[in-house]
Design a protein around this nucleic acid. Structure first.
Lengths: 311, 311
DNA sequence: CGATTAATGCTCAATATGAGTATATGCGGG
DNA sequence: CCCGCATATACTCATATTGAGCATTAATCG
């Protein structure tokens, strides 16, 4: 071990901090929405996790309920500049509730679909997909000479974005972003160009690879809500079943069958009635529920299995 | 960012390299089975992944088919000594075939159940579980005064190890190891004591937290084979369905229903016949199959869903 | 030849899942 | 006070998935 080399390394913690408010999935950003909050890992921190927890709680004044490691990156050219300094970035997914939290400094919550407009299928397939994104990906595929290569490109795109009769798979967030990056449609693919805030059909850009990290976080979360009761970290203490459903739908970017959703949640005993009712949303008053924390103890592998099928 | 502090960090890559040979799951070790192979991450490496790939291939003379990041650790007391040097360890799961691979130096493959004897349920529940481990965990739970605490302890143990009518869940490898660690039954929990190689009922110990990392790798792999066709990375180019089944069983530590296993594998079109037959194992000759690589392209989320139920 | 070991083909019951119908209960406006 | 409107909540039903057996076929071994 060449100590001299090993020392030229720095570690950075990056958080994908998620909340769901007003039916929209939000992510905490800094720098006018261009970056995810991140801070250095220092010797004073007990562990990576606690290092992250420390400064995120300091920023949001909110205890983090749930933290999960996402991925560790250390690509040579991450920094962008020619510094010989090597940076290892350790990213985390954290869930919280927006509520109080007078966010310090210029930190701000953003709708995550600002960054990935093609990911929200709650109101049906976004028209930009078949109308604009599809054709461009097709052109990108056709742009190579090699027929086989061309076919492969289009097939990858079709599977990822659900063209050609392929079913939409909401968990392929990262795959889709990487495809758009490879095709150079997202701004990050050509560094140093258009610096405007424009929210194009390919979404708002972010600094360095932060948008990729966000995509990783969304991917993980969309997968996780199907087999772990993590949604509740995003819910207020009591809620109606429809509110819970809307939260899941916001994250998954698709609607679910209401009756089946209730059946599932109830038969799995994930929640219990509080006795109270609410008549806020207009229709017949709904029972208020709370998460039954018992499930965490009872079922180690506490399955949720939200089917999240098409609606 | 206090540069002075950030520089005092080193990064290390650790591999859980797995193969399945002769019906047993093996893991590559060094230091007489006491450690997982690991090496420093250096400035010369293009990325973390390629750094790992570089030296693992150098050690095993075998191209790695599959690499997946496991987890990144940086706990203060990891080093054990009082050095102020902070080490970040990035662990990976890698799959390969044992075959050729004249393993360099003192590297050696070990049956992973040497480290976790209680994890192999292929021949039924290991007698040590109800006979010895259970009672000791019960005693550990009873050792606290607080009744509620005591109850919680036992309940955690019962769920993790399948006592009190709880079903055995093969994916709780890490949870079980951590419980045994907490109860101080595994050697690593009391550093600096018995240094012998003895394979006690609590398994062979490893250096530092390598056994925990191995547990993390097994956990991940046991989960993954259920929804991704990764088993094939461990199989020879052609194989019979029973061989495939035995491989899955070795990893999962439990047997599966033969007919249902075949039904699943075939209806998902994960394999295709080669035309050849083999009459090696005794009974009626079996068809030889090969993995149908097409599935990787066709299904992005190439589901495997090996049920892995009780048999 | 008969026992042994697998391979392979089929059946069946119990759930899980996707989708739809019907009824209940609040509110606001006319 | 009655009429929609919007949502809550209760059931029903067809189909797919799963877990478990039973039966038959085809080689090898002694």
């Amino acid at each position: 071990m060449k100590a001299g080399q090993r020392h030229a390394i720095a570690a950075e913690l990056i958080a994908v901090l998620v909340a769901v408010t007003a039916g929209q999935p939000r992510v905490m950003t800094i720098m006018n929405g261009k970056a995810l909050p991140s801070g250095p890992f220092e010797l004073g921190h007990r562990s990576l996790q606690s290092g992250l927890r420390d400064w995120v709680e300091q920023q949001t004044r909110h205890p983090l309920g749930y933290i999960e490691q996402l991925y560790t990156f250390a690509d040579r050219d991450r920094a962008g500049d020619a510094s010989e300094q090597r940076v290892i970035s350790i990213s985390y997914l954290a869930l919280t509730r927006e509520e109080q939290a007078g966010p310090a400094n210029k930190a701000a919550w953003r709708n995550w679909y600002d960054y990935f407009p093609w990911e929200d299928h709650r109101a049906g397939v976004p028209s930009a997909l078949p109308d604009a994104i599809g054709p461009r990906l097709k052109a990108w595929a056709d742009a190579v000479d090699d027929r086989a290569m061309s076919h492969t490109r289009w097939q990858r795109a079709a599977i990822a974005f659900g063209f050609d009769n392929h079913a939409w798979n909401e968990e392929l967030v990262l795959q889709r972003y990487e495809l758009l990056y490879e095709a150079r449609f997202v701004e990050e693919a050509h560094r140093g160009q258009s610096e405007d805030d424009a929210r194009s059909m390919f979404g708002r850009a972010m600094q360095a690879d932060h948008r990729r990290i966000l995509a990783t976080g969304i991917t993980r979360l969309r997968a996780k809500i199907k087999y772990r009761p993590v949604v509740f970290e995003l819910m207020p203490p009591t809620f109606t079943l429809l509110q819970l459903q809307r939260c899941v739908e916001a994250l998954a970017g698709r609607v679910v069958h209401k009756q089946n959703f209730r059946r599932l949640v109830e038969q799995q005993e994930l929640v219990e009635v509080t006795g109270a009712m609410t008549a806020d949303t207009g229709g017949r008053p709904a029972k208020l529920f709370r998460f039954r924390y018992g499930v965490l103890a009872e079922r180690a592998a506490a399955a949720t299995k939200l089917p999240l099928s098409l609606a």
